[in-house]
Design a binder for these strands. Structure first.
Length: 594
RNA sequence: GGCCCCAUAGUUCAACGGAUAGAACGGAAGUUUCCUAAACUUUAAAUCCAGGUUCGAUUCCUGGUGAGGCUACCA
């Protein structure tokens, strides 16, 4: 099926036969022929001119002739400078469409039998609600998991909830001191409530520091000696000691947060196969660190704190246990990693975590290696870029965070507003139109975020970032809905797809569409190899745009020639299916009508 | 200070070392007795600077400039 592999094989044979040299597969570059030239695939012949000792044009001529004589699907070729543009016969493309039109999961590979890939994403803290940064994380994690599955991998999606630590104690303490027993309501869901007290703590803490400085303490002293922070630290120690009241409060407040997160996750349309809690993994982490001390992998300082020395690896020393014996982020991650390995014996452990933690993961891998964990090499930090706002980085303390729930609500509201203006809800029940606008609003958001290369930082301007026209989720949804509309009309008129003849002469738009459909499996493969949903997103956009041009230029069910009509229907149907399939990989629903 | 990333139209994003650097939004101008105009068509507009490697550099290397991130007994 993959014509390019055939081209490459025959190019190797051509060079061997013509010039008597064997070249490596990797030395051969094929690409889609650019639109302004005639052809389907292009072979770059510059690298072979040293072997042929001829001009690029002559070399291309030689190879072109060889290929045409040996591959019967080739119709013709032309040469522009050192570029050999090869055209296949129309029957090849029509036949290709015919072959894939019956394939159910076109583009996806059958699942293989190897060990699963565990992918961690989301990883929230239970002291504040989810924000825009988490949205990028969640969308990437979910999408990459789907892309891995589409490539035949077994995938386990896991969440790691950071449900313990000093930051949670801060919320707990503030609620105890200032909360008056406040509980979550319809209006203020649990994660928001707990977040409110986290902010309240920070405010009170800052005020306290200010007062202490006025009373003559240095800033450093004030920061360390403030009664509030001491109380929070005391609370953490009590928590680790299993103090009943502290644990009860902790459980209560965390349960509020989980109920709040569930709503956010559900609206966003993501889920997990398993959830880990750091409260359940940190002890294992401590145990492993203690073992490491015994084995002299780590050092204990005078005050009792435990450190790992990574200066030989070009890094610094890193704290693994505080002097008071409590664990830190790294301690927990060591335990979590071990537990996860024990649970799944995975082929790979992927962590979807922002690039601000590149250093952390470098250290984590080295620490695990020092502990003798062979599988540390299977850890892959999928490091994605920050989401920036026009005013700079999001800072929760400065109130510049974009809340996940608010953002989604806003998107859906805008979709509804614009949709109603355009009369998109006509003929739909209230329930149907609510669903439609939710699908459209979320598509706009998800596509906007996923179309950007994960590795890169991206800009998000709430005012003007989200659009419903052009290179957007709704544009693609609209294209899909148009295709479904064609089939509703076709059904009404009893038009069906018959066995269109192979000799159908196809026009350039039709051929271009088939060629794009041909690209789909390669796109999924590459998206998997590079962990980039953006490649899928950009692909669907190309496909949708091409279809809209085709739709604009040529009649489909109004075409009078029955064979052509049937062929165009088949082409439209497959395009719709690929759009739906690819959008699913991004976690975006497509409506039947809009 | 040290380490890491990034720099492309006015703006937000594309481009395995390959052809004349693609899109979208915004700007200008058009298309609806025709399968959904959230569409389609035309148009103006960009590779931070200086070197190097290469047949060929937005892409690789070196040096600048500029913006982020990390460098916590925070996570």
């Amino acid at each position: 099926m993959m014509m390019e592999d055939l081209l490459i094989d025959y190019t190797i044979k051509a060079i061997e036969s013509l010039y008597g040299q064997v070249v490596l597969k990797s030395a051969i570059a094929t690409q889609k022929t650019r639109k302004e030239f005639e052809g389907d695939f292009t072979l770059v012949v510059f690298p072979f001119t040293k072997i042929s000792r001829k001009s690029p044009e002559q070399t291309a001529e030689d190879i072109g002739n060889y290929l045409k004589n040996n591959i019967n699907q080739i119709n013709s070729f032309n040469i522009v400078k050192g570029f050999l543009n090869i055209s296949f016969k129309n029957t090849y493309w029509v036949d290709f469409l015919k072959r894939i039109s019956t394939k159910e999961n076109y583009g996806c590979l059958k699942s293989n039998l190897s060990a699963p890939i565990v992918i961690e994403y989301s990883s929230p803290n239970t002291n504040k609600p989810l924000h825009l940064g988490h949205i990028r994380n969640n969308l990437l994690g979910w999408s990459i998991a789907e892309i891995l599955k589409a490539n035949g991998n077994k995938v386990v999606k896991v969440n790691l909830v950071n449900d313990r630590g000093i930051h949670i104690c801060k919320s707990m303490l503030a609620w105890q001191l200032l909360g008056n027993g406040e509980e979550p309501t319809e209006k203020l869901k649990g994660d928001k409530l707990v977040g409110k007290y986290y902010v309240a703590f920070d405010k009170a803490y800052k005020e306290e520091i200010k007062t202490l400085i006025e009373n003559g303490l240095t800033e450093e002293e004030a920061t360390k000696k403030s009664p509030l922070i001491l109380k929070a630290q005391e609370m953490l120690q009590k928590w680790e000691a299993g103090d009943a009241d502290t644990i009860a409060l902790w459980k209560k407040m965390n349960s509020w947060v989980y109920a709040g997160f569930d709503i956010t996750y559900k609206t966003l349309g993501i889920n997990f196969d398993n959830t880990y809690y750091e409260s359940e993994t940190y002890l294992l982490g401590k145990k492993l660190v203690t073992e490491g001390v015994k084995n002299k992998a780590f050092d204990t300082k005078e005050d009792g704190s435990v450190w790992v020395n990574l200066t030989n690896d070009g890094l610094d020393e890193k704290l693994l246990l505080r002097s008071d014996g409590t664990s830190v982020y790294m301690t927990q991650d060591i335990g979590t990693a071990q537990l996860r390995y024990d649970d799944y014996k995975p082929e790979k452990l992927i962590y979807v975590v922002g690039n601000e933690q590149n250093y952390h993961f470098e250290v984590l891998k080295l620490v695990l290696k020092k502990l003798g964990k062979e599988w540390a090499k299977n850890i892959f930090h999928l490091s994605y870029g920050m989401v920036e706002l026009p005013e700079g980085k999001m800072k929760s303390r400065e109130g510049t965070v974009v809340d996940a729930d608010d953002l989604m609500d806003e998107m859906i509201r805008t979709a509804k507003e614009k949709g109603n203006e355009l009369g998109k809800a006509e003929g739909l029940t209230t329930e149907e139109s609510e669903l439609l606008f939710k699908q459209i609003g979320l598509a706009a958001l998800k596509y906007f975020i996923l179309k950007v290369d994960p590795k890169k930082n991206m800009m998000f301007n709430p005012e003007e970032s989200i659009d419903f026209n052009g290179n957007t989720g709704p544009f693609i949804q609209y294209t899909y809905a148009r295709i479904q509309s064609i089939f509703r009309k076709a059904k009404e008129n009893h038009i069906v797809i018959n066995n269109y003849p192979l000799e159908t002469s196809i026009n350039s738009k039709e051929k271009e569409l088939i060629k794009l459909l041909y690209e789909y499996p390669k796109t999924i493969k590459e998206a998997c190899d590079t962990f980039s949903p953006a490649l899928v997103a950009n692909y669907i956009y190309e496909l949708a745009k091409e279809f809209n041009q085709f739709y604009h230029d040529y009649p489909i069910i109004k075409e009078e020639d029955k064979n052509i009509c049937s062929f165009r229907l088949a082409l439209s149907e497959k395009t719709g299916k690929v759009i739906k399939s690819a959008m699913h990989l991004l976690g975006i629903d497509v409506p039947e009508q809009m």
